[in-house]
Nucleic acid binder design. Structure first.
Lengths: 238, 238
DNA sequence: TGTACATCAGTGAACGCGCGTTCACTGATGTAC
DNA sequence: TGTACATCAGTGAACGCGCGTTCACTGATGTAC
């Protein structure tokens, strides 16, 4: 994280400029949105002629991809770090830590959150082979949480959940096999619901869908997050 | 809906051209995204010189606002219609109808859904006085559903929900007063959670966040929607 | 340690394209008497 | 019913901007012998 392989002065200068370009690009994302991202504007801010940018970045699309991968990793880092601060056995706290980290990161990186979870960028598709890893770090954490929850059994709820249809059971079986995990359908389905609900709440808050009806956003989020945790059903702490 | 006040032939032609412009704009939204919306391109497709578009639409931003208002109303119509097809007293079915209508509309109007619920358009803020009404039609329906649920009481759940913090209670009281409704905090909070979770699921599906892990999207959605309905807790049908 | 050569950052011009918006105008369609 | 006038759709040129990308080039920095 801190000490990269040093390299020659030229290499270091090069790497630094790439970092500057990405920083300026992130700032532009915030003010202009993803489609307003302009290599010429970045060059201008760097005090460099527009064509010189191509010494550092092969194309606009490539820069976008780099920003997306970086953003996913930044979110992943934040969430993993937050989760590492709570006791591994306290499953509910881990869920709360994940949720809060996602919201916290999103509030601090609004434009990047919008890039990852907002409208797709028209005419651009992130190359799956590069985003697949970084883009699934949060759901990985949630799945690990489900894996650790599984041995405690599925906590019964009242009212009892509706039976899982066969088509969905097939999806879950495939997922279980692909990831080589031992989590039963009910728990997986609950996890998926909590996962999408979490992002639904974050998107609503960030994109202003609550209008003025929610003032105490942090309290609101925490409370609803706890409800989602109950919905998954972690074992009691003792 | 069908028979507008007729008007003179000129007025009708004018109105028709405005409709054509909006249709072409919607098509452009789908291929280029909101920031790629171009008056010049629309004029080109209409077989008209670029400046002539200003006979019909005062500016690009104004056209965007019209598209947003139309989209909200289209979604509102679809959802209200769907809900009117189920028995008013069958509260759970009403919830399912609302949810399915939102998803169905979103799938049929992906670009417009992204316009309403995706990343905000940079450098553009929809004028609140024009979107406030149309933009709240779905949540209005959900709130009506909560109002109709309230007399049946709040359905107890196991595990019991966490206590609602004071800050959140204040938000809910204000909401209750503004809307002049009699729905207690617990039910309101549940409704909000189900609402944002609903959109979270729709956004995830549309924006491709599930990756390949969910194949049977309709079945998945229906099932999770039913779980959210349980979470709100409608009275049993008899 | 000094020299020849390779590497690389940055320049400047150009290609070919896009956009929103204004303005003075022509000519057709509608309206009032 | 016919004519004068007003309204409106559409033209074409222009203003002043923006963009990504390529290409031949200069000149500084680094490397190998």
């Amino acid at each position: 994280m801190t000490s990269e392989p040093i390299g020659t002065p030229r290499q270091r200068a090069h790497a630094q400029t790439v970092l500057d370009i990405k920083r300026l690009a992130r700032e532009q994302l915030a003010t202009e949105g993803s489609s307003g991202l302009s290599l010429r504007a970045i060059a201008r801010q760097l005090g460099i002629v527009s064509s010189a940018i191509y010494r550092y970045v092969p194309s606009r699309d490539e820069l976008l991809t780099m920003l997306i991968v970086d953003a996913y990793n930044s979110l992943g880092d934040a969430t993993e770090t937050a989760q590492r601060r709570v006791r591994r056995a306290d499953l509910e706290k881990r869920w709360l830590a994940i949720g809060r980290a996602v919201r916290g990161w999103a509030l601090e990186h609004r434009a990047e959150y919008a890039l990852l979870y907002g409208s797709p960028v028209p005419g651009y598709a992130a190359p799956a082979e590069r985003t697949a890893g970084p883009g699934t770090r949060v759901i990985q954490l949630i799945i690990e949480l489900l894996v650790d929850t599984a041995p405690h059994g599925v906590r019964p709820t009242e009212p009892a959940p509706p039976p899982i249809p066969a088509a969905l059971k097939r999806d879950m079986r495939e997922l279980r096999e692909n990831l080589d995990i031992d989590v039963d359908d009910e728990l997986l389905v609950r996890g998926f619901l909590a996962w999408s609900a979490l992002y639904g709440m974050v998107s609503f808050e960030l994109f202003g869908q609550y209008g003025g009806s929610v003032q105490h956003n942090a309290a609101f989020f925490d409370h609803q997050l706890a409800r989602l945790g109950q919905l998954i059903g972690f074992p009691e702490q003792n």
